[in-house]
Design a protein around this nucleic acid. Structure first.
Length: 423
RNA sequence: GGAGGGAUGCCUGAGUGGCCGAAAGGAACAGUUUGCUAAACUGUCGUACUGGCAACGGUACCGAGGGUUCGAAUCCCUCUUCCUCCGCCA
């Protein structure tokens, strides 16, 4: 959520930045400014009325003490009258605050200066390309055939016990999952991130805090009896650790990492590209979350991007980095890098990580602030990134490392898997 | 699940209708003193909205929401949550 004060004072700039996103309802901006104006006026009237009422009440007390009962009675009836007025005003205030809020949450984050404008993935900017496509033997298979061939991931079995999109990992497949999780966590720890284990279900307030609610309600599994949501990413619980928190400046940057399963309903997404591990309802991911000083957030975005790339390099994968254009970025992001690995057998790029700077957009909703040296509190910036999401990495490893003699395990993973090939 | 007791500022903790945005102590920060450290002393020390160039004001917030009252941290109701005891249980 953007800050109203900022919108009010930078109307032109806000509109200009929103156009980079190809945002369809620029009229919201003026609506917000109007609601805010009305809110302040109502607030001021109410404050003034309350000030009088408070003064009167004080005087009543004084008169009662000094035994001037009749004067007190007169004052009492006066105050009773103004109470009606306050009631009307505070109802008005509640209405306009609600309208303001509703409008505000519909406004996406403003793209950062470097974000290319554009509407579709075609407008994304490739900022880096690493490696070259693996050269495969003639009988190379897509990963969903490899998993069946080596009996390491069983999609049908998962369908039986739960439904489509909930695979069962078997034997070396399960071990490979665990190896990747441990590898990613160890690397994150070495890079200064603190490992956290967090709840896999969150309440409504947390969903709001990071922006999944009300925007993407349908994406999350909802346990209605308890009104809890299964997390779509560790970003939700880990970032919400800092909801309603005022940090000290010297506590920044905060660097957390967490492994969690992630649950996504992915409503309405069926088709050729969701086969195998490409898109699942439950998958594993190691997430990075940072809370940083506003001056640092773009430098840290680069640092996180570099870190994620180092993982891909160590796994020996051919990948590219995209700077997402305004139209393709997530609602809450100010700038996003996507990392995509080349799926040799599918002949297409698979997104395996997304690293974003949210600037103060999440922090504003979370009320996540820090107190600077001057004693002034201000909103912190938040960032997160996947490091990494497992299924597509598994898919990429299986496809790119397949040989006639089986799938070769990348060197860095062998201490974790305890085997060097799947056959 | 049953019974009881709590929730106050960074922390401990007082406050049971007006003199309370809130005592006191601790922590923290600034200063004085000091050869250094410590101690002592003095001061500062919640958040948000809002008015004002500023000085300085106004309003709201004592877990959340509602109610009673001229007036609520204080009384009433609902909810959340924590603790103690019992039961059940990985």
């Amino acid at each position: 959520m953007l800050q109203v004060n900022y919108i009010r004072e930078n109307r032109e700039k806000v509109l200009e930045r929103l156009s980079v996103r190809n945002f369809k309802q620029p009229e919201l901006v003026d609506e917000i400014i109007r609601f805010d104006e009305e809110r302040r006026q109502t607030q001021t009237s109410l404050d003034n009325l309350s000030a009088i009422a408070n003064a009167n009440a004080k005087q009543v007390g004084e008169l009662m003490r000094t035994g001037k009962k009749e004067e007190a009675e007169v004052l009492k009836t006066q105050t009773a009258n103004s109470k009606e007025q306050s009631k009307v005003l505070s109802e008005q205030l509640a209405v306009v605050e609600q309208q303001l809020y509703q409008a505000l949450v519909q406004l996406p984050n403003l793209p950062g200066e470097q974000v290319p404008s554009g509407a579709t993935p075609e407008d994304n900017e490739v900022t880096y390309l690493h490696g070259a496509p693996a050269e495969l033997h003639g009988n190379a298979l897509p990963h969903w055939e490899l998993t069946a061939k080596y009996d390491i991931i069983d999609f049908e079995l998962g369908t039986k016990i739960t439904g489509a999109g909930f695979p069962v990992y078997k034997g070396k497949g399960a071990r490979l999952q665990r190896a990747l999780i441990n590898f990613f966590l160890d690397r994150a720890t070495a890079a200064g991130y603190r490992e956290m284990q967090v709840p896999l279900m969150v309440n409504e307030a947390s969903g709001f805090g990071t922006g999944q609610l009300p925007d993407k309600e349908g994406q999350m599994y909802h346990s209605t009896v308890d009104n809890l949501y299964l997390i779509p990413t560790a970003e939700v619980p880990v970032t919400n650790l800092y909801r309603d928190v005022i940090l000290k400046e010297d506590e920044l940057p905060i660097k957390n990492t967490a492994y969690t399963p992630c649950f996504r309903r992915e409503a309405g997404s069926y088709g050729a590209h969701v086969r195998g591990l490409n898109r699942l309802h439950q998958f594993d991911k190691v997430e990075l979350v940072q809370v940083v000083h506003p001056d640092q957030s773009y430098a840290i975005l680069e640092e996180m991007s570099t870190y994620v790339q180092s993982l891909l390099q160590d796994l020996g994968l051919h990948y590219r980095v995209l700077r997402l254009c305004g139209g393709d970025m997530g609602f809450t992001s100010a700038m996003t890098y996507d990392m995509e690995v080349w799926s040799a057998a599918q002949q297409r790029w698979l997104e395996v990580s997304s690293v974003s700077n949210f600037e103060a957009y999440q922090a504003n909703r979370l009320k996540l602030r820090f107190k600077g040296a001057t004693g002034k509190t201000q909103l912190a910036h938040t960032l997160n990134g996947s490091a990494l999401a497992l299924p597509r990495i598994v898919a990429a490893i299986l496809e790119n490392y397949q040989t006639e003699e089986g799938v070769i395990i990348p060197e860095v993973l062998r201490p974790y898997t305890g085997f060097d090939r799947i056959d």
